[in-house]
């Protein structure tokens, strides 16, 4: 009997506390800065083109093979407006396959891909699975339009291990190890 009274007392005591729930669609929890949504590409405002050169490092290291990337010669390089010899031509990420492991961000040589840390990439429900295959345009939009204000750029787990990212003389197509 004593135990049951204790249970009832505990229930009433806790019922008096402030609720911790958030009424979701109307109010949202604040996402932490390093929140890992889906990978998106960054836009280089200085040269008005994507950072991505289409070197396919991310596609090769992706555990789920959710990416398809191709590259082309950068027309702006010939005009002398950009340091990138090659530039991404097409880029598809199948968000339905992606397991948000962050490996593409870690291996990227050009810091061109980040995990979206806005609510936009958390609310990804679609009626058709095909709508979750993002093309280059959709992948660049958050960065290009300024929705993605402050992406978490610290990771580079491989960089910790003594491996230095190449940023100067950004040459595409570094396929060989």
């Amino acid at each position: 009997m004593l135990g049951i009274l204790k249970t009832i007392a505990a229930t009433f005591g806790i019922a008096a506390r402030k609720p911790v729930t958030v009424q979701y669609p109307t109010e949202r929890k604040q996402l932490p800065h390093r929140s890992r949504g889906f990978p998106t590409l960054l836009w280089d405002f200085e040269h008005d083109e994507p950072f991505c050169t289409g070197c396919q490092v991310c596609a090769r290291y992706c555990p789920t093979d959710c990416m398809t990337v191709t590259m082309k010669d950068n027309p702006k390089y010939a005009e002398g407006k950009s340091p990138r010899k090659k530039i991404v031509d097409t880029f598809y990420i199948d968000y339905a396959r992606c397991m948000r492991c962050d490996i593409c961000v870690e291996v990227c040589n050009f810091d061109a891909i980040v995990m979206d840390n806005t609510w936009r990439s958390v609310e990804m429900s679609r009626f058709d699975r095909q709508d979750l295959v993002m093309d280059l345009d959709a992948l660049l939009r958050p960065s290009k339009t300024g929705l993605l204000k402050n992406p978490f750029r610290d990771p580079m787990g491989v960089a910790h291990s003594g491996w230095v990212p190449k940023t100067e003389g950004a040459e595409g197509g570094s396929e060989e190890e």
Partner: peptide, 30 residues
Amino acid sequence: EVIQDFFEAVTGERMMYNYFRPGGVAWDVP
């Protein structure tokens, strides 16, 4: 949920952290 929020603040994910690496952890704590 309190613990989960803490993990999210450290690793960025609520469930599938992918944070430990052979040789250490992927990035520093906040």
